[in-house]
Amino acid sequence: MSNVKTILKNIGAARLIIILFLFSLIIAAAGVGQSMSVLASDSLVRFGMNLVLTLAMVPAVMSGTGMNFGLPVGILCGILGGLTSIELGGTGMGGLVLAIAVALPISAVAGYLYGRLLNMVKGSEMMIGTYVGYSMVSIMCIGWLLMPFKNPSMVWPIAGRGLRTTISMDSSFGSVLDKLWAFQIGGLTVPTGLILFSLFMCLLVYLFTKSKTGIAMAASGDNPRFAEASGISVNRSRIIGTMLSTMLAAVGIVVYAQSFGFMQLYQAPLNMAFAPVAAALLGGASTSKIKISHVIIGTILFQSLLTIALPVANVLMPEGNLSEVIRLIVSNGIILFALTQAGGGRE
């Protein structure tokens, strides 16, 4: 009995609620005749394509800057990398590697500058981060129009310049990771390459947290005064954390886009920080403490919920726009719920 109690306590009330909600959705989905294997396949894909974006929260939280609400900064760098790769005619695995290779240095520089900025506003990083994200997205709305990309698959066909709002990746490196070593059992498709790649990124971040720099960074986040007295530069640690978070966001969006099949520009990156933040919080992280396991569990829960809620809503509310409204309510509802759990509820 007390065993059950401790297990329940370890799971935490918030996650318990989400798990129960997920189960009831699964039952509802089965009830309205949805194919379980399709839903499971979709959940797997969404897990893989979002994992790296959620992972970007780890260095930010660990270095003490809280959840990275400025994630769009990194996302924009990733998009830039992806576009460059397409422009240069990159396809398949080579295209993906090229996209990441271009995105990393750009995001490193952007992350460094963003980190410098966060060091000036200690204590309100999350709010400032949100604003920085919004501003960068707005600035890039102009940027996308002016950048000298020429590839006809990307620019507006009539004007011949200015990037389109969505850019199909069918002819470049769409789905390369999803299809890599993919296999089927029953009706279930397993996107092996995608999942392996995302988990491999988790492993890299885990190894980083156990390195000298990683340990120093975690100490700065946990107790800055201790860190300073121990000869660790807190500001430097925070910049490293922000840089890594931004670089992970850049890689994350490339992975996301190849799975999704499209690059989304202009307003699309605006609210992209919220889902990863919510996933991390649902997984058990707080704004001051996070583990890789939180990221993995949270992404599974959050993405499965969204995947399964959508078809259920569709069946319950067949009129086109109502189901869209329901989907928005559900996803934003979960995000809101997750945000209320930040820091509270657990230890």
């Binding site: 975690a218 100490a219 946990d222 107790n223 005064r225 201790f226 007295a229 403490k289």
Partner: peptide
Amino acid sequence: RGVGLVPDT
């Protein structure tokens, strides 16, 4: 508390 320890570690 303030300087000596990293409490959650």
